[in-house]
Amino acid sequence: MRTEAVPGAGGRDLGGMVACALFILLAVVALWDTTSMTDSDSYVFPRTVALAMIVFCLAYVGWQLLWPRSAEAGTATAGSTPRRVGLVLAMLGAAALMPWLGFVICGVVAFGSITVLAMYDTWTPRRLLVYPLVGMAVVVGFYFLFAELLLVPLPLGTVFE
């Protein structure tokens, strides 16, 4: 299991250090949230974990400052960022609109959008015909599997009710 990290200036793992600073902030927010809890059963564990996280983050930052170690080069900037953002937006959009438009419509639209985003080959007439059909088959097939066989109440869409 290898992780990729972006090397920072001076051989330091700048990205890792920034992430540690954000984790410390998160731990402080968690500690602050526990002050509103009255029962010790609720706060004893999260407080212990938040404090441990702060200690580990400080240890990592201190380690990097004292013994800078160049991190492995990653592939952070390789590839198209607009396509990455587009994928996330398509998935989030489908999820957010599902209660209103229903599962099938959101599924078909998301499938179509992501197909366009992931398409690197030329659109031939055959692909223009086959890919939408496959998309429809996948969406309807899974709809049938989940809604009819596994009895999952997939949203039908309030717009059409």
Binding site: F103, A118, Y120, G135
Partner: peptide
């Protein structure tokens, strides 16, 4: 172009269910 939307769609329906 078929693998990515299929897997993305499966993550959506799988998580929802």
């Amino acid at each position: 172009a078929m693998l990515v939307p299929t897997v993305a769609f499966m993550t959506l329906i799988g998580t929802y269910s």
